[in-house]
Nucleic acid binder design. Structure first.
Length: 823
RNA sequence: GCGAGAGUGGCGGAAUUGGUAGACGCGCUGGAUUUAGGUUCCAGUGUCUUAUGAUGUGGGGGUUCGAGUCCCCCCUCUCGUACCA
């Protein structure tokens, strides 16, 4: 042989197999009832068609593809679809920049990214491809919206909402991160606007409870959703305003501390505060100051607690005492009722405020054991009630119930559950989105566009300019006839939040071409829910919450039966880590990107796939390494060279033991690789195991037929197990090895238990838990025999000199530990 | 502040769930092949050490015959979240 090693040619091999897979139709999910295989639905979060694949996509889709292919080899009928989250702002921004309509830009990007995905050799069922900007997709979303209007779950309301200037639109609460817009990082403003909402709050309890079903989700994501929903239980209590018929209503989680109330605090935006500010310039100025504080600036550490007395008093519901009302900058209008009862003795914040303004502090809870100096700090734990007249002596838990009962009996309050979750604001003042199917009629008001007139098609040829949505200036679109009375009317020109499209696409894939319904019930039953969903953790409380909600909405408008399909859209969730370069996230703005296409051109798709799967566990961040890519490529070439050893006989005596050992290695690696695939798709571990098998095959030299067979068996298993990860490469190897079917369609190898049996194993001998030697024994050796063998071993014997064995522990197949003491 | 997770060689990371710590890969060192570089192959590679061993999974305690793994305390980092009443 020359010293020019035989390198496999990725480029031609990959093209060849991609074509063959298409011809064989192996990636198409089978909808036929005759197919008796169990179904498996594997889904990766679909991409926004930005135009170019980045490494994050590559990682996401390689993970998903490995899962899908593995499940196919295990005999599942796999659904593995792909599509485009095609509406959204970047298309509009690009349109403004290039002077082309967003549609054109979007469709061109889709075409380009589709080709890039195909170059990676991902096993998608392209027959189900969807683009959410197409009327045949969004018409069902419009249909759904009209159903929700009918049910009273969709409504239009004027409210204080988040407004982003650069994006020129309102945002949902979930899209405001640390007070700034999730897309452009600009501080959001508060504006009063009439907007469309859907009542996700009606589903708060179910969304919270069903989190318990999501055993296959990372705890982290479940926890984030739980926090976001933010359920708290307590009481709503009414305080009569002195000299008025009005009441000041508050929410508290600590009704047991009711008797310790020494003042009330309301938000700057509270009606009572506004009322008091009339003719009171100083107070008005303070309210003005509070309203200017953006959420970003409201940093707990830095912001001083400030307030002003309102010269209003309320009457304590139990004692009848007069309680002063203050306005305070730490009370939020957007949570609860915008007012709180302040119990400085038992709330740290109220305590600070009371101290600052010299308000009185009344202790009503005492620790069950020990003392507490209430002059020092608030006692915020549960305890026993004191200074609370009829409630004295009750533990906090019982006191809560007792106070609520008292309030209910006296009609001054009631038990209440409070959620942090707000209704989903889903109208956007943008052009490139699905039109909200509503007509504004002077006589009839808001009228839903009837079924027969759907879809309301978005004109695709408009040119946005950056200001007002071109839709509102498009007369052909705006002017219409009221579906109810037939008179001239105007269309709603707001469009849906693009999270609407991504909230149900996973269900649409089950029947992507269905044109009679949003989803086909039978297909839902066959495929849904998604067995394995894979994507970034950044959608933990955005997309993943909306999609869970939407799934339940679809169920409740009767599109499928929750008992049959399930009440949750994603059974298992894998949140993959980011791809880093030099320790920080790859991003265009930082200029630290590696273009996947360059890697594919240089090494081939399989090397790119192998590296991203090998370099880190799926859920952890992956540090890009050119040297690591080289290593992945080297490994494939090593396997490639192994093919030359097939059928070769080496000089030497046939050694039955070595052949047996190779078979044992092969089957133990089949076991380990299978295990790694099953345990959270630990592809990095699986690949390491395959590398070991490859190394074992590389150093094996067959001297007889049995040896050649064992080598062949090991290599075939290796190639088969590699095929979900590096499918083109594996298929080419498989063909050279004379596989009957393509490697990617070959059944997953089975462990031959008999090959794992050993007649002699090496047993570690420990003394006082420290390794002192190794002995060769039969695997089911008795403790006595093991001890004898250990004592006979010279290394061990040295350590036993002058020692008395007091205890012997044998761990079958692993070790023998001797506990000794000086004789 | 609260919640969750993580700390293992020069680096990415393994460890059959309490049983030989550092698999596998990268990097590095030496050697072979080569005019040379690259490729490939062989050997080595936690630390200290007179080669015998000692020591070693952020630090300190504990349970155990035996701890990276379990328990308690502390430190550091990452992520999420926050005046939520």
């Amino acid at each position: 042989m020359s010293n020019q090693p035989d390198l496999y040619t990725a480029d031609s091999i990959e093209k060849k197999w991609q074509q063959r897979w298409v011809e064989a139709g192996i990636d198409v999910a089978n909808d036929s009832d005759d197919d008796t295989r169990e179904t498996y639905y594997c889904l990766e979060m679909f991409p926004y068609p930005s135009g170019n694949l980045h490494m994050g996509h590559v990682r996401n889709y390689c993970l998903g593809d490995a899962v899908a292919r593995y499940k196919r080899m295990q005999g599942f009928n796999v659904l593995h679809p792909i599509g485009w989250d095609a509406f959204g702002l970047p298309a509009e921004n690009a349109a403004i920049k290039h002077g082309r309509p967003p549609a054109e830009w979007t469709y061109a990007n889709i075409a380009q990214m589709r080709e890039q995905l195909k170059r990676l050799g991902l096993s998608y069922d392209w027959s189900r491809e969807i683009a959410t900007c197409k009327p045949e997709y969004y018409r069902w979303e419009q249909w759904m919206f009209t159903k929700l209007m009918e049910k009273g779950l969709a409504y239009r309301k004027e409210a204080e909402v988040n407004w982003c200037d650069p994006c020129h639109t309102v945002l949902a609460n979930e899209q405001v991160v640390d007070g700034v817009c999730w897309r452009c990082d600009t501080a959001v403003k508060r504006k009063n606007l009439a907007q469309w909402f859907i009542k996700i709050t009606d589903y708060a309890e179910e969304l919270l409870n069903d989190l318990d079903q999501l055993k296959g989700w990372p705890d982290k994501v479940v926890g984030m959703q739980r926090n976001w929903i933010g359920k708290s239980s307590g009481a709503e209590i009414s305080f009569q305003v002195e000299g008025s018929n009005e009441t000041l209503d508050i929410f508290t989680t600590r009704p047991d501390t009711l008797m310790g109330v020494t003042y009330m605090a309301v938000a700057a935006g509270h009606p009572l505060a506004k009322q008091a500010a009339v003719g009171h310039p100083e107070l008005a100025a303070f309210l003005e100051e509070c309203s200017k504080i953006s959420t970003k600036e409201a940093d707990v550490e830095t912001m001083e607690k400030k307030g002003m007395a309102l010269d209003i008093h309320v009457i304590h519901p139990v004692t009848g005492d007069l309680v002063p009302v203050w306005v305070a900058n730490f009370v939020l209008m957007s949570y609860g009722t915008g007012a709180v009862m302040s119990v400085p003795a038992h709330d740290a914040r109220d305590f600070d405020f009371a101290q600052k303004y010299g308000l009185s502090i009344k202790q009503v809870i005492t620790p069950t054991s020990g003392d507490w100096d209430i002059a020092e700090a608030a006692f915020t734990e549960a305890g026993v009630l004191i200074n609370s007249s009829e409630f004295d002596g009750l533990p906090s838990v019982d006191a809560k119930a007792a106070v609520i009962t008292w309030l209910e009996q006296h009609n001054k309050g009631k038990e209440r559950v409070q959620y942090r979750l707000r209704d989903w604001l889903l109208s956007r003042q943008r052009y490139w989105g699905a039109p909200i199917p509503v007509v504004h009629c002077v006589d009839c008001g808001l009228v839903a566009v009837p079924d027969a007139q759907l879809p309301v098609i978005l004109p695709e040829n408009l040119q946005p300019t950056g200001g007002v949505s071109p839709l509102s200036e498009c007369e052909a679109f705006v002017n219409t006839i009221c579906p109810a009375c037939g008179k001239a009317a105007k269309r709603e020109t707001d469009t849906f939040d693009t999270f609407m499209e991504s909230s149900w696409y996973m269900n649409r894939y089950t029947s992507a071409r269905c044109d009679t319904a949003m989803v086909d019930a039978k297909s839902m039953q066959r495929w849904a829910p998604v067995d394995q969903y894979i994507g970034g953790v950044e959608h933990a409380v955005l997309h993943l919450l909306y999609a869970r909600f939407y799934h339940k909405l679809m169920r409740d408008v009767g599109l499928f039966d929750g008992a049959e399909v399930g009440n949750e859209p994603f059974k298992n969730l894998l949140t993959q880590g980011m791809v880093l370069l030099d320790g920080s996230k790859m991003s265009k703005s930082k200029g630290n990107t590696v273009d996947p296409i360059d890697i594919i051109q240089k090494y081939g798709a399989d090397t790119a796939r192998l590296f991203t799967l090998f370099a880190a566990p799926p859920e952890r961040d992956l540090e890009w390494s050119d040297a690591g890519v080289e290593g992945a490529s080297r490994f494939l070439n090593r396997v490639w060279r192994l093919l030359d050893k097939v059928g070769k006989t080496y000089q030497g005596t046939a050694h039955e033991k070595l052949t047996q050992a190779l078979r044992r290695t092969t089957h133990s690696h089949i076991q380990r690789v299978s295990h790694a695939f099953e345990q959270g798709f630990a592809f990095n571990v699986a690949i390491a195991s395959m590398m070991e098998l490859s190394n074992a095959l590389g150093s094996f030299e067959a001297c007889d037929e049995a040896g050649k067979d064992a080598f062949d068996e090991g290599l075939r298993a290796l190639v088969t197990m590699l095929s979900p990860l590096v499918p083109h490469f594996a298929c080419e190897c498989g063909e050279r090895l004379g596989f009957k079917t393509m490697a990617v369609m070959t059944p997953w190898p089975k462990v031959d238990a008999s090959a794992l049996v050993q007649d002699e194993i090496s047993l570690v001998v420990q003394i006082q838990g420290k390794k002192r030697g190794e002995i060769l024994v039969s695997p089911d050796v008795s403790q006595d025999d093991a001890l004898k063998a250990a004592q006979a071993d010279e290394h061990v014997a040295k350590w036993l000199e002058g020692q008395q064995i007091v205890k012997v522990i044998l761990v079958k197949g692993r070790l023998l530990n001797l506990v000794v003491k000086p004789a």
